[in-house]
Every structure is written in C-alpha cells, then in structure tokens.
Amino acid sequence: MSGRAGGGWIVAVLVAAAIGAAVAAVLRLDTTGRTGSGLSEAYEYDVSRLAKIDPNLVLYVESGPLIHTGMNQSRSIALDGAGRIYVAGDRAIRVFDAAGKAERMISLPGEPQCLDVADDGRLFIGMKDHVEVLDAQGKTIASWDSLGEEALLTSIASHGDAVLVADAGHRIVLRFDAAGTLVDHIGEKDADRDIPGFSVPSPHFDLAVSRDGLLRVADPGRNRIDTFTLDGNLEFWWGERSVGIKGFCGCCNPVSFALLPDGGFVTAEKGLVRVKIYNSDGAFVGVVAGSDQFAGGKQIKVCETPEECQGIALDVAAGPDGRIYVLDPPDNTIKVFRKKGAST
C-alpha cells in the first residue's frame, strides 16, 4: 500500500476540490420545492393587480349579521316579499328571517340548483332537469316533467302566470305557464329575429324578470345582459367586455345578477370575484364588494374528491329595501350589504 510520490499533491488538491464541489452541490440541491419553480415572471399568473378596486367606487358596506347557511354546499339564494331569505343546497331549502335567524328547513328529494319565491309565496325550485313547485308551507304541489339528460337548470323566475327557466345544458330559456306547460323557447339562434343564440360555456346562466315584464338573461359567453320581451323578441343588450371595473371580464360573466327595486342591476362575477351595480340602462354605477371579501376569491381549490372541487360561483339577491344579499358558496355564508350612508 505504498502511495505514489510524483504529482501526489495535484491529486490531493483535485480530490479535495471535488469533495468540496460535491458537498456544495448536495447542499444546494433543492429536492423539496422550497425555492419555488424558478420560472421567470412571464410564467406567473397573477390577477391580484386587476382585482384591486378603487375604494372611491365602493358604494356599499357590509351590514347586519353574517348568515351561516349551515350547509355543505349552498347553491342559490332568493328573497320573498317579506324579506325572508331562502337558500337552496344540500337537498333542502333553508329559510332565514330578515335578521338572519334560521326559521325552518324544507327537505327535498334531490339537489336543488336554483329557486324563486313567487309573490304568493309559492316556491319554484329548479332541480337538475326539472322544476318542483312547493306551496308556502313547503308541501310539494307539483313536480314538472324532466327536460332530458342534458338539461341543467341554473335559474328560475316567475312573473304573473309565466315561469321562466334558464337551461344551461341546452343553452336556452324556457317559458312555462303556472301549470307547468312548456309555452315557448326564448333565445334560440334565429337569424330572422336577429337572435344570435346564447353562448354558455359553463354552468352559469342567470335570468330575471323585471316588474314591467321584461326578461333579462345573462349571456355569459358574450359578457352581456340581454333584454327580451316575454314573447322572445330580443330588445336590446348591454355589457362591456373588459377587465376594467366597468366591464365583465374573462369567461362566463356575469355569473349571476338580480334586479334592484329601482330597476338597476346587481351583478356577480367569478374569476375576478366582484359584485357591482349598474343602472337600468346598463351604465356602471359602483361596486358592492371585491374579491377580498369573499372566500370565492381563492384561486384554485384542492380537493379529495372531484365533487368537492365543483366551483359554484356567487349568487346575488336584492331586498325590497335595496339591500344586497350575496351567497358565498365556498364559505357557505350570506353577506348582506347596504348603501353607504343608508340607515342600518
């Protein structure tokens, strides 16, 4: 085991340097993702800059109690004439009084998607593919025929004798009479009537009927709100496609809207979560709340099972006193907003 003399020190230096380099390499090696992906800014996707809202535009403040729906999956919200709050989800409808106190719960045979409270207190509930009608006490009056496998009812509204249902699966609005007879298809592509057909890329497709009997339908693929007569004539539309605060941005917005007592609109958006007010002509008025106020502002959800990941966007309703009720499904809460300066 005799060492070799010539050039021994060179070998020693090289080996020592190599050991040093090896140790340094091991220490520098990040196997756990601690240092991040190391991708340049061009790979970043950040909407937080766009989500910022000028505080001067915010016209509303949160008021009243935060109402917990007590559900695992809240889906839709509606108000009746007395200001009671109805929430659909978890195979039930839960009713809260105006102060947010839980009043009662109506069990349903299936998962409700949307609901509307008629003036006479009847409940129209859109299940996935059909409508259930309940009386004010919660007794089932009727269960209408199924609209087919592909149907997905996302919004329902009643006006007098007419019941209007938004079917996101078939991308069409259906008009029923109070007995459940299908009267008309509204919004079908029709070149003669200048109707382009709804563009509904995702299961968000809302409608509402104003007091004067005009039907408003959100066309989320075009980022606008259309106005139809109940006969199905497209009258006019409004809505600007923009990331700016005045417009609707990204895919499938507005996801939900409601009519205010003064004829204006309150709209809810996903992606960049924000709730905004427009007047009856569609001119931007102001902001109710931005993404920082909702749990839905979380960018991506991580779930154990796919159904837990089903993103359900905000739903809005307006009270007769002008208050705005926002259902936040990821959080299973209802937030109530009132105009700044208005009495509590």
């Binding site: 080996v15 090896a22 390499a25």
Partner: peptide
C-alpha cells in the same frame, strides 16, 4: 447540482 455531484465523484 446532481450533475455536479456526479462529476465530482467521477473526478475523485
């Protein structure tokens, strides 16, 4: 880093 580690070991 892994390549440097390997190269160092090969150098040794």
């Amino acid at each position: 880093n892994v390549l440097i580690l390997g190269a160092s070991l090969l150098l040794i």
